[in-house]
Structures are given as structure tokens and as C-alpha cells.
Design a protein around this nucleic acid. Structure first.
Lengths: 200, 200, 200, 200
DNA sequence: AATGAATGAGTATTCATTCAT
DNA sequence: CATGAATGAATACTCATTCAT
């Protein structure tokens, strides 16, 4: 059923391979300290080959983020298709976000390092795309919460979605900064409790 | 009672002035696109004068963050000294964080743009300092929550502190990205409700 | 009578087509800003096909000039074969140069843009060729003038040839630079008068 | 009477020195084959120092041409101020152009190598400047010829000016291409005769 | 013959940092 | 202390040329 010729497959593989290697370098050293030469050497492609696939260094960078974000949104969307009660929904959201980012820690770091940039430089195509993705993300969550909450719930689905993802992200960031010495399983459970019943 | 001579005062004023102007530039254009020339011209000091006060551009940058974080921690510490019940505590934390960052949006942006960097390059003095400050921040909150929660509360003070600050930050980030079109007053109230009683 | 096979004809046509298209690009954008990719795309041949016909970009470039110069010399030679008196000779030279370059403005521009290069880099095959062509050009004119001037004319045929072509070229250049707003017919007549009788 | 401080003098000297050395390199190797590194090394200034004085390589290049053209126009203007009859005028123009370019052969080569560029890329500031200078040049000559010719002369001063400078330039170019083996003194005399009385 | 993906040497420009004045 | 001219390492990007298919 594959519609990809051998050449197209190879091209896609090369692209993916480059993005993976570049992602590792960007995550490790940051955008500016990672040079196109670094990426070329690490990926064992020539610089010319990189520019054949990505017009600029920035485009290469955002391609990484875009790919992984798309991947995440797809996974999340699939998960949220099932039927949940409130507790189940919160649990699945937390679990998805935790497992996904454990699997893609370097992308998480990239994402964080770019959130600041999103606030700068308007009129930027990349900024627009990232904001659209962000909106898509919240929309998925809002729709899901709307299904399990009464319309006159005292806290809006939107507020819940933003607060929940913020709480999760902060925990993950904290976990990373503390060299992963925290028990994530327990943290997950506590966040569920917190979101369901509040602090007490 | 002042222990500062006139000279020392002038020195401090110059330093503060430079940091304020540099902060504006960094927040607007990012770390790399802001040059020492830009800062020199905007501050009306020579580049030499900048290097007299800050060894490197990076140090200047982190001086900004450090100053403002210290300022925030001091304010927060003072506020948390009062006596609160649980609701009062949550309210005051949210309020402090909201008002502080509304007053210092540019620092908030700087902070975000640098959170990613903190994850990189270990062995970095700046990274260590920032992490220490982060810890200090959470400690303040944890101590405060410990005072108002029973020791066997189902959610630990630490988890609450991290979740709360994450939720707040995400709301503020969202507010910035949406060009400040959200009613922050209402958001504050909703977060309080959410933290106190959970989503429902 | 044609000695060209179909294949050879096709080969020649392709070559001519490429040279024409490349000439347009070179004239419009200059040697360096015109890339082999540009030429490949515009000519609808692959880059490989270009390199099959021309060893280097420079050779392609000089092939254009050489072709057109050969063409010009042939035309001029044919014209000068006829019998003229002095006035007729001057008129025909001016007319040929004018009409030829009106028909091939882009080549004229190329020629100019390369005259400087001819002064550089000795030991260059292209330079040698161009100088040989230049000499051939002057020789044609000198021979023609020698036929209509007495051997002890106060101005040598060589001097006349150089001065005349220089005067014509400068007028044409001026005409181009002034966006063709000058009446070339009248200029032609004035040059004839000038050459025949001097300024007054 | 000098209004230049020592610093200003040094700055001007450095600029002139750089332009002289760069001119030699550009004339020898052409615009593209001359790198900023070459100029930096030859001039014994750092690349940064070059960019302190000239915003781009192109600006450096045109500064050379502009300087020398200005110099020439000034010299010519001064010379044409005197009183001449027709023969004297033609002689002085030829002589000025000959001696000037013998003194500045490298600039002459530069000029030639750039005449082609002037035909390309409109909207270019440098192009505009060069065309203005060209016009200034012809205006000087036209005014001078108008003074010594009757208003109803059969050949216009403008045509004469263009033809004369073209003839001279072509002779100089020819002289350069023939490795200076021609007797310029005699050529000068012949051009005078040609312009005064025509070919015979 | 024809293709066009891959190569990698080559270069203009920037900017943090220094230091003579 | 203050200045800002000078430095030169660092880097994104281009494009003529090659060669496996």
C-alpha cells in the first residue's frame, strides 16, 4: 500500500536522520552554539546536503519542533477519542504528557528554549505556526473537558487546560533540573488528586 | 543610616540604569541579536564602561535576571510572613506572581527565554545560581504551605508549589501570547477555585 | 550539400539555444550573479548537459562572446569587400557597427563588462583569443583604410581605426546609459562629418 | 590653516592608504577574486578596521572609483578654465586624459571593468553616482567646446565630446593591451590632427 | 547522452572583547 | 575611571563541479 518509491523513502529517512541528530545537538548546546558544520559532521552529510533539504538553519530547527509537536498532537488526539469520566480524562492527559516527554526529553528542552523566542519578533512565520499548534493543543483539551464537565462549571475548561498543562510542564522541568531524582509515578498521582479535589 | 557614599550611590545607579536598559533590549530582541554596541548606545555609556561593570555580555545578562529574581523573592518572602489560612495563602501567591510579572513583563520574557538554557551546559556558574534561586523560591512556598496544611495531606506541599507556579506561569504566558486579551482578574479567581476544590 | 547529419544539427541547435539563453542571463545579471543552475533551468537542460558541452562556466561565457564576435567579423569582412571611396567606407563602418549592436545589445553589454577582465590575468587562453579577435578587427579596418588613403596620409590607418571604433562605441554606450533617448540617425551623420572634416 | 586635527589626518591617511592598496588588488585580480582578507593583509589592517571605514566590499570598491573620478574632474575643470582656441582645447583635453591615466593606470582598468556593471542592476546608488559623474564630465567638455565653436557648427559639441573621449579611451585601451609598445606621443599628435581636419 | 543530488572550498560580514590614550 | 578604535575568530550560506544512476 506504500505510495513511496525507494528514492522517496531514502529521502525521508535522510531527512529524519538529520533532524534527529540536529535535535540532539540543539538540545545539548542550544541553537546558536550548534553550527551547521556541527550538524553536517555529526550527520555525516555535507553542508550542501543540509541546505538542499532546509533553506536555512532556522528552518531546520523549526522542522524539528514542528515534526515532534505534530506527532504529539496526533497521539493526544487519538487518546482523547476514547470515553472517559473526569478522573480518567485527567489521568490520561497527565500520562500522555509524561510518557511523551520522557520519550522525547531533548525535544522538550528544545521546546522550552524556544518558548521565549515565540514572544519576540512578530511577523515571523515560525512564530505563527507554533502559536497555531499551541492553540490546537488547548482546543483538543478544552473539547475533551467540555464533554465531561457541566456547562456551568465554576472553572472553565480553558482555564483548566492551561493550568493542568502548566502544572505538568513545571513538574517535568523540575524533574529535569533535579537530575530526575523525583519519583514521577507519585507526582502523577498527586497531580491527579490535586486537580480532582484541590490542595486538601 | 545610609552606608553608601555618594560615589557608591552613583555607581549603583549607573549599574541599575544599565541593567534596566539592557533588559529592555534583551527582552525585545533576544540575547544574540542584542549587541554590546546596542546597549552602549542606548545606555549612553561606552562599551568600555560596560565591561568595567560586567566581565562579559553573559554576565550582564544574568545580572539582570538575578537582580529581578532577588527582588521577587524578597517581595514574596515579606508577603508570606503574614498569617494566612489556606485560601488566603493561595490567593496571595497568585496575586504576587500576577502583579509582579505584570510590572516586569520584560523580565518574564527574559526568564522564559533562558529557562531552556538552564537545561544546557552544566558546570555553568549561572546555571547553578539560577537553580539555587529556583530552589529558594519553592522552599518559600513549601514552608508556607506546610504551615497551613496538615502533615498528612494527600498532596505534598512541594507538589502543590510546583503545580501552582506552573499553572500561573502558563496562564501568564498564554495571556502574553494572546496579546493580553484575556481578563486576568477572572483567571485569578478561577485558579484559586481550581486549587482549592479541584476542577469541579 | 549540407555536411551536417541530423544528430550534428541537433547538437548545434542545442548549443546555440543554450548560448542565447545564457547570454540573456549574463547580460541581465552579470557573470557572477548568473549561476549554472539559472542557465540550466532557463535553458531546460540539466546542469550535466551544460557541462557536457562546456567544460567550465567561464568557457560557456566566452563561447558566447566568441560566437558573436566571429559573427560580427564575418559580416564586417563581407561588407568591406565592396569598393568604397573614403566617405563610403566610413559610412559603412559606422552603419555596420551601429546596426550590429542594436541587434545585439546584450552582447554589447557582455563585451563591455568583460573588457576589464581582458586587462587582468595574463596567461589566460580566453584573453589571448579576445586579443586576437580584436587585432583581427583592427586589421580588417586598417586594410580597408589603406586602400582609400594615400600611403603618406598624415593620420595612419591604424590610428583612424582605433579612434573611429572608440568614438562609435562611446556613442553607443552613451546611448544605452541615457536609456536610448538620443537620435542615433543624427549621431551617425555627425560622426561621418567629424571623421571626414574634423570638428569644424 | 589646516582644519584637520592629528587624529583626523591619521584617519584620512589610513583611508587613502587602504584605498590605494585595494585599488591595486582590484585592478590586478578583479572585484570578485579580490577578497576582504586580501585587502586586510595587504593593507596591514584587520578586516574589522576595513568594515569600520566601509560598510561593504562594494562600497570600498566604489569609494576608489569615486575618489579618482572626482580627482580627475577637478583637474580637468581647472585646466579648462584657461583660454584656448579650438586646437589648444583639443590638445589639452587629450593631454590631460593621457597623462592622468598614465598616472593612474590601475584606476583606468577599474573603471573599464565597472563600465559593464553600470549597465546592469538599476536602482543602484553607485550606478546613479557614476552616471552623474559621467554627465559632469561631458558637461565640462561641452561647455568648453561651445566656447570655441560657432553655434551653428555642423557637429554638436556633445557629439564631439563623446567621440573624442571614446577615441582617446580606445587608444589607451589598445596601448595597454599591446603592452605599451605604441608611441603615445605620436598617437596624441595624430588624434589632434584627426579631430581638427578629419581623416585626410 | 542526460540527470540532478551531493559535495565542500570559499567569503562577506558580525561582534564580543581588549587596550592605548 | 572612561573611551571607542581595533581586532580577528567565528559562521551561515553559495555554487561550480562531479559522478552514480
Amino acid at each position: 500500500m506504500s505510495k513511496l518509491t525507494r528514492k522517496e523513502k531514502e529521502r525521508l529517512e535522510a531527512r529524519t536522520e538529520i533532524l534527529n541528530i540536529a535535535a540532539r545537538l540543539f538540545a545539548k548546546n542550544g541553537f546558536h552554539k550548534t553550527t551547521m558544520d556541527d550538524i553536517a559532521i555529526a550527520s555525516e552529510w555535507s553542508k550542501g546536503a543540509l541546505y538542499l533539504r532546509f533553506q536555512t538553519k532556522e528552518e531546520l530547527f523549526f522542522s524539528i519542533i514542528e515534526d515532534i509537536v505534530n506527532d504529539y498532537l496526533e497521539t493526544l488526539n487519538t487518546s482523547l477519542t476514547g470515553r472517559y469520566n473526569l478522573e480518567g480524562l485527567i489521568k490520561i492527559i497527565i500520562e500522555k504528557q509524561f510518557t511523551f516527554f520522557q520519550d522525547h526529553i531533548q525535544f522538550f528542552q528544545l521546546l522550552l528554549s524556544e518558548q521565549g523566542k515565540a514572544l519576540q519578533a512578530s511577523g515571523n512565520r515560525h512564530r505563527e505556526i507554533m502559536m497555531a499548534k499551541q492553540k490546537e493543543h488547548f482546543d483538543l483539551l478544552v473539547v475533551a473537558f467540555d464533554k465531561v464537565l457541566s456547562p456551568d462549571n465554576s472553572v472553565s475548561s480553558n482555564t483548566i487546560a492551561i493550568a493542568l498543562t502548566g502544572a505538568i510542564n513545571n513538574h517535568l522541568l523540575n524533574w529535569l533540573l533535579n537530575h530526575k531524582t523525583v519519583d514521577l509515578q507519585q507526582v502523577q498521582q498527586e497531580i491527579v488528586t490535586l486537580m480532582l479535589h484541590g490542595v486538601q
